[in-house]
Computed example of a mutant assay.
Amino acid sequence: MTVKRTAPPLLAGERETLRAFLDYHRATLAMKADGLSDDELRRQSMPPSTLSLLGLVRHMAEVERTWFRRVINGEDLPLVWSDEGDFQVAYDASAATRAEAFDAWQTEIEHARRIEKEAESLDVTGHQARWGEDVSLRLVMLHLIHEYARHNGHADFLREGIDGTVGA
Score class of each variant (00 low, 15 high):
M1C: 04
P8G: 01
P9A: 15
A12H: 01
E14N: 11
R15A: 08
R15W: 10
R15F: 04
T17V: 07
F21N: 05
D23Y: 02
D23R: 14
H25Y: 12
L29I: 06
L29N: 10
M31A: 12
L41V: 08
R42A: 06
Q44D: 00
S45T: 13
M46Q: 03
P48T: 00
S49A: 13
R58K: 10
A61I: 05
V63R: 02
E64A: 04
T66Y: 14
W67I: 04
F68L: 07
D76C: 00
P78H: 06
L79M: 12
S82I: 01
E84W: 00
G85L: 02
D86A: 01
D86Q: 03
Q88M: 12
Y91D: 06
D92F: 04
A93P: 15
A95E: 15
A95D: 14
A96C: 11
T97G: 08
E100L: 12
E100Q: 15
Q106S: 15
Q106R: 14
T107W: 09
E108T: 13
E108D: 11
E110F: 02
A112G: 11
R114D: 11
R114F: 12
E116N: 08
E118Y: 10
A119F: 10
V124D: 10
T125L: 12
H127G: 07
A129S: 10
R130L: 11
W131E: 06
G132E: 13
E133V: 06
V135N: 01
V135S: 05
L142N: 09
H143M: 12
H143R: 12
E147T: 00
R150I: 01
H151F: 05
H154M: 08
A155S: 11
D156A: 03
R159P: 03
G161Q: 12
G164Q: 09
